[in-house]
């Protein structure tokens, strides 16, 4: 397996407050990588740094052998990295179908967009039923589905998911995680999954990273992490 994305010694700051300390990690083509950690560990900051919304003060982000450190967010998206952010961030006053259009904002291939829209509706039939409704009127679970569908509309090669389970009923979470696995298997999309629900995330992931206070403190295959005593105690509540 070849490296798709690599973070090398990243330090990211909010103003003068350092949020990430010397973070290094890599993602191979076709993998599902999970990043687990508590509140404020720096998981979302890591994703925002990859996406170009935040620029790291030190270190570099290399994607497909190209240094994308400090690249503008819209350029990063055009290279195939797409994020489903924490809290979903649905456009509340755009209809569901318009939300999907926005996902494909940078694409010009009309037929491809149409195809992907149908694929998204196939994955999430509820979105098709409600396609004319405003995004803000959806339930939390439906919004999460819409957020994932919108990201897929960009036809990403690397999909970043930030806490897709947040605030959702267990049954919906299960459904969403099944779809994440399906996306990875069917279209070979590489997935970087950030989760507080460590148990679920480690079950669908291939390799995992554990983050604490802005630092990567542990990395291994997900199976090994699931069996690790420290991980069990801190994140699995066992």
């Amino acid at each position: 397996m070849s490296k798709m994305l690599e973070l090398k010694n990243i330090d990211t700051y909010y103003g003068n407050i350092q949020a990430l300390y010397n973070v290094s990690l890599h993602i191979n083509h076709g993998e599902i990588i999970t990043l687990i950690g508590g509140n404020g560990a720096g998981k979302s900051t890591t994703l925002m740094t990859i996406c170009g919304v935040l620029s790291p003060r030190n270190g570099s982000v290399v994607y497909e052998e190209l240094d994308i450190t400090g690249m503008k967010a819209e350029k990063v998206v055009s290279r195939g990295i797409c994020q489903v952010p924490e809290g979903r961030l649905i456009f509340p006053e755009l209809s569901i179908s318009e939300n999907l259009d926005m996902g494909a904002f940078l694409r010009k291939d009309k037929d491809g967009i149409k195809h992907d829209r149908n694929y998204a509706y196939e994955l999430f039939p509820i979105l098709y039923e409600r396609r004319k409704q405003m995004g803000g009127n959806l339930s939390g679970g439906e919004q999460q589905m819409l957020a994932i569908a919108r990201a897929l509309m960009a036809r990403p090669r690397l999909l970043l998911l930030d806490e897709p389970s947040m605030g959702l009923a267990p049954l919906i979470v299960k459904q969403i995680f099944e779809i994440i696995t399906k996306i990875n298997k069917e279209s070979g999309t590489t997935i970087f999954l950030v989760e507080q629900n460590a148990n679920l995330a480690l079950k669908i992931g291939h390799r995992g990273y554990v983050m604490e206070n802005g630092k990567i403190v542990m990395t291994d295959t997900c199976d090994t992490l699931l069996a690790n005593e420290d991980v069990k105690r801190a994140y699995l509540g066992l």
Partner: peptide, 12 residues
């Protein structure tokens, strides 16, 4: 409606 998300879908 959401400037951050607009950036994330590639809107300049």
């Amino acid at each position: 409606q959401n400037r951050k998300m607009a950036q994330l879908v590639g809107i300049s």
